[in-house]
Design a protein around this nucleic acid. Structure first.
Lengths: 246, 246
DNA sequence: AGAAACTCTGTATGGCATACGTAAACACTG
DNA sequence: CAGTGTTTACGTATGCCATACAGAGTTTCT
């Protein structure tokens, strides 16, 4: 029996479809890992990961709660499967795109992915990416960076940097918009004006005065911030390459 | 009765100590918001936010579970209080530091803060920062950036960028080290060598070949990556300023 | 035929946040 | 001092949750 209750190996087997095959005995299974994963995915995408429970999944599939455990060893493992299922293969690089354009495209695609599946940002990463699609995205980012002229370890370093940065930005944006929608219109403005006084927080105060409060409270254009930062970062990369290797 | 069950206003009142004062009647309260917050903080810091429950807090304080609710309207609100309590006032800027050094110091200080309170990275931000200490950190970052020569909205934009980026990096690092500690020694290497083949993921494959697997699996020096990326970003800022405003 | 393997279900078990009712402590009123 | 309203603290209950376990029924292989 190679089925264990769910170590990392088992996760990988489930992700890559290399799990030990079921025997031919017993009743025909009515469910499948795929059915369960996609049902869970639908719930998470539309109603958020907060309402996702084994009971809920079972109910939408018309089975008992415990049936799920015949296919998936635990909820954590299921989420791992959902993560890879939520990630389509990355779009191929445009022909003739520079490494910068390639990376910028990658960032935008990832951003859209986070918009489509906001719950992805909420789940704690239990392991480094090992699913086929997750790895493909990683590969795509590194591919773009490898054309920049950076050295091998710099490619990896900056790749991780960009991924972490993007994830953080997206999470911040999601949290802010979520919290904004739960507030009554003037509430935040009222609080800010009460708390952010000129003597306590001078810079913040003038920034808010000049740009309006909405830019902090409602993060509708975090993507703009993201691209601005990315542009500066890539400028820095080009200069670095010119200086050290040019 | 100005006490509601816990809207944002109430949170702010609790954070700034401007909550409506208790009447003088009734038994002397044995607990306090501060006691509860610091007990909860101690648990989260040492054992992680996963084990933090109202029952657990009450037990360590020697009170019944429901007593807690006499002081704090909900667990979510309590976490908000913990967040601000976990954040000491930011260190003052060094005398004579350039804006770059000031920001780099800020990043390192924030990094250390995340190391001391890893659970901070796990809690979903329910609202924009409104606590005194959280706002002070925000102010400090913007202060450094405001000296860079960037324009007002660029300061805010890049400030949010840096914060989100830092948070994402730190979260990634924490997740990776956590998952690494739950793995047996060769397990990850075995998986990687099985899954990351040269034909499927060429760039990833060569990077791993050249740098060793540990750099992905065990994120011990994410701080190095972070500072590398930050350096490039700030290079980009300087160039941007020179070009547009110099 | 019978054993082995498998699916599916019902029923715990132990956890969680928190609503509600109640008893006791205290301060202020008369 | 008696009474009254306020507040603390507690026990209990509700309704979630993941998941362990023990059958019962189904299918295939020996």
């Amino acid at each position: 029996m190679s089925r264990d209750t769910g170590g990392m190996i088992r996760t990988v087997d489930l992700l890559w479809g290399t799990d030990s095959p079921r025997g031919s005995r017993g009743p025909r299974p009515g469910l499948s890992v795929e059915k369960i994963t996609s049902a869970a995915l639908a719930i998470a995408d539309t109603e958020g990961i907060g309402v996702l429970s084994m009971q809920r999944i079972a109910k939408t599939l018309g089975y008992s709660t415990m049936s799920i455990y015949n296919y998936v060893p635990s909820k954590d493992q299921l989420i791992e499967l959902m993560l890879d299922a939520a990630t389509p293969p990355p779009p191929p690089a445009r022909d003739g795109a520079s490494w910068r354009e390639e990376l910028e495209d990658w960032v935008r695609a990832t951003w859209q992915l986070y918009q489509a599946h906001p719950w992805v940002l909420k789940v704690p990463t239990l392991s480094p990416p090992v699913g086929p699609n997750q790895l493909a995205w990683f590969e795509a980012a590194l591919h773009a960076l490898s054309r920049s002229g950076l050295r091998g370890n710099e490619v990896l370093s900056l790749g991780l940097h960009v991924i972490g940065s993007l994830r953080g930005q997206a999470a911040m944006a999601a949290d802010l918009t979520a919290s904004a929608s739960e507030r009554t219109a003037g509430e935040f403005e009222q609080i800010v004006s009460r708390v952010v006084t000129e003597d306590r927080f001078p810079v913040l105060h003038t920034v808010i005065r000049r740009n309006g409060i909405s830019e902090i409270g409602i993060a509708q254009d975090v993507l703009v911030d993201l691209e601005f930062g990315l542009r500066l970062l890539l400028d820095g990369v080009e200069e670095h390459v010119k200086r050290h290797l040019g």
